[in-house]
Design a protein around this nucleic acid. Structure first.
Length: 613
RNA sequence: GGGGCUGUAGCUCAGCCGGAUAGAGCGACGGUUUCCUAAACCGUAGGUCGUGGGUUCGAGUCCCGCCAGCCCCGCCA
């Protein structure tokens, strides 16, 4: 309905300009803003224009009189009256608009069988190959297992990438794994002493042991200055390309990579690994560039760029350290090299138009600093965007950081296992209660789908920026704003299709549309529950556009939940298969579009659906 | 000390460019099944939107102060 919205917005602007030419001229090129928005309540119609209220003061007229003048112009516009019923002026001067029912039905017909469900492709670039959008997410560390801390970045990043792809952007999904830097110096130094075989033989120790070694190495690094010095030397060797260090490093990465991939496969997440090490060849050039740009200052032996507008203690500007006093580089250098590379035109870079970082909110000031330096260094081309998409911490139900009973970090694998186990236990209980018989393959498939969907949905449905309280009980709840509730709505529609709504099968857009409605026999709706569903279905394109702009997946979740609610009300109160023929085909059409919309929406969240559950 | 985020119903949370009587879900209480999966639907109760000012026709939303919680702040990422 975005298109209809834009048409009405233009008509309103025209009407306002005609009614108040002097005021419109005074706004220069923008014209008067009708402040068109979705109606805040169903009884106000479909859309409301609040612009008359804002004009009252500058025009020195009563807002209702202004609204009346605008409405008079609108009613004289045949293009407008073809779309809307007579506008109603309400309250202090709101203009309430109701779309003509036949227009709504026609919009539904347009979407039947349309694989894009009315969502337009993003505007193409002016010329040449479209510039990619980079989504940087997940980013676990080599030699560590993925844990609950990687959950949100992975799920949110994947969802945003899916939405951007659906809108037609070429998306580069990059896994900026921690495969470089001090941590490797620590680990390799430690392994040389305690498990040298791990450094030249693949899989000599298993991943769990490696994690333990890492922990020991970290502890020694913090406590033992001699070890610290050796570890730092090891980093320099590695970054300098020492073959022994490189070999060890390669083995460790390969082992971790396989473990990560198992998780990504399970969650159906596509991701290209391009770790920190990729940018190693560019680090020196980054510092050189900063030096020649006059941004580099050596302070206490470290290469720094002092930040503008950020002062630390005693009002002294805060530095971003890009070269350590031992000559080594750090993560800020790597992040700068990544920005420089990503925006640089091919073949020396990715030529990105927009770079999105999905990391926890704790890194906000780090990214602000890095972005500022990149900007001042001239690495972000005109018209390009670099954004940090922050998210809050995952907390336990006690409001503290999520831990296992033993107090350890929760491994992502264990978390997913538990969600699936709980979903399976739940399903088996239900089958027993209802006396249903299902084979093992069905049970396992349904439980896996529901369990993983619950984990993803619970995370995505929350506003990213706040901390997120993790609860298996809540996310697997069968009612409320949960994955099972949405999946069930899809299952209900699939049930209708199985029992006689055979028109809901595949076909081209025109064929499908023709099954439900023809010129002689258009879609027709009578019940309020049908109209509510129609209106909800037609919001999909606007919601997608909003998620693309705001990068807030919870907006899509809220929409899908509301759509499911409206559908369930419809399903409960309006018969479909037992309806008289004409109503039946229109209702089947609604079911079809509703299923397609829910499936597409869930797909964009990274959640597959079920036919039965 | 500086910076960021958060504060909305008993609990978990929505709330879009500032719009009409602040919304869900859970939990509580009460109803609904000869009918497409009741994993559903309908109803009731529940709010000084942390707090004090300001901006304006209008503020949960914007600005300033204060309080509380969490996070970040030179060679870890």
């Amino acid at each position: 309905m975005l298109q209809v919205f834009q048409q009405i917005d233009a008509q309103l602007r025209q009407a306002m300009a005609a009614a108040f030419p002097e005021a419109a001229a005074a706004t220069a090129d923008q014209g008067l803003d009708p402040q068109l928005a979705a109606a805040s309540k169903p009884e106000f119609g479909d859309l409301q224009a609040n612009g008359a209220l804002a004009l009252a003061k500058p025009l020195g007229q009563k807002p209702r009189a202004i609204a009346e003048a605008i409405v008079a112009r609108l009613q004289a516009d045949p293009a407008f009256t073809a779309l809307c019923l007579e506008p109603q002026i309400a309250g202090p001067g709101f203009i309430n608009l109701t779309l003509r029912p036949e227009r709504l039905a026609a919009e539904v017909a347009l979407r039947l069988g349309d694989p894009r469900l009315g969502v337009p492709l993003a505007d193409g670039p002016r010329a040449g190959a479209p510039a990619p959008v980079i989504v940087d997410f997940s980013s676990p560390n080599i030699a560590k297992e993925m844990h609950v801390g990687h959950l949100r970045s992975t799920i949110i990043g994947d969802c945003l990438a899916r939405v951007l792809e659906f809108r037609g952007h070429p998306v580069l999904r990059l896994n900026h794994v921690g495969d470089w830097g001090t941590q490797f110096g620590m680990l390799i130094t430690h392994l040389k002493q305690v498990a040298p075989e791990a450094l030249n033989t693949a899989d000599a120790v298993d991943l769990g042991d490696l994690v333990a070694f890492y922990r020991q190495a970290k502890q020694r690094f913090d406590e033992d200055p001699a070890f610290q010095a050796t570890a730092r030397e090891e980093v320099v060797k590695l970054q300098g390309g020492d073959p022994v260090s490189l070999k060890a490093w390669g083995l460790l990465c390969e082992q971790s990579r396989r473990a990560f991939q198992a998780i990504y496969d399970r969650l159906a997440i596509q991701l290209s690994e391009r770790g920190e090490s990729f940018y190693n060849p560019f680090l020196a050039a980054v510092v050189d560039d900063l030096r020649s740009a006059g941004l580099l200052v050596v302070d206490e032996g470290a290469g720094c760029v002092f930040l503008e507008g950020v002062s630390g203690k005693e009002g002294k500007p805060l530095p971003l350290i890009v070269q350590k006093s031992d000559g080594g580089f750090n993560y800020a250098t790597t992040d700068l090299a990544a920005i420089r590379y990503r925006f640089a035109p091919p073949p020396a870079g990715d030529g990105a138009a927009r770079v999105i970082y999905v990391t926890d909110a704790g890194q906000a000031s780090h990214f602000a600093a890095v972005f500022q330096v990149a900007e001042r260094a001239g690495w972000i081309p005109q018209g390009c965007r670099v954004e940090h998409v922050p998210f809050g911490l995952v907390q336990g139900e006690d409001g503290k950081k999520l831990k296992t009973r033993a107090g350890d970090t929760v491994r992502l694998k264990d978390l997913l296992d538990e969600a699936v186990e709980r979903a399976e236990a739940d399903l088996r209980r239900r089958l027993a209660d209802e006396g249903r018989q299902e084979d093992e393959a069905f049970i396992r498939h349904a439980a896996t789908t529901v369990g993983l969907a619950a984990v993803k949905y619970a995370d995505l449905s929350q506003n990213r920026t706040t901390n997120y309280q993790f609860s298996f009980d809540r996310m697997l709840a069968l009612q409320g704003n949960t994955a099972p509730y949405l999946l069930y709505a899809v299952v209900r529609i699939a049930g209708i299709a199985r029992k006689g709504g055979d028109a809901a099968n595949t076909g081209t857009s025109d064929e499908i549309s023709g099954l439900f409605a023809t010129k002689d026999n258009p879609l027709s709706f009578s019940e309020p529950q049908e109209w509510a569903l129609v209106r909800e279905l037609l919001r999909f394109d606007a919601v997608i556009a909003e998620v693309e702009q705001e990068l807030l997946p919870n907006r899509l979740c809220t929409y899908l939940f509301e759509l499911s609610q409206v559908f369930n009300r419809f399903y409960d109160q309006v018969p479909v298969l037992k309806a008289p023929p004409q109503a039946r085909s229109s209702r089947l059409a609604l079911c079809r579009l509703c299923a397609d919309t829910l499936k597409k929406g869930l797909e964009l969240l990274g959640i597959p659906t079920l036919e039965r559950m």
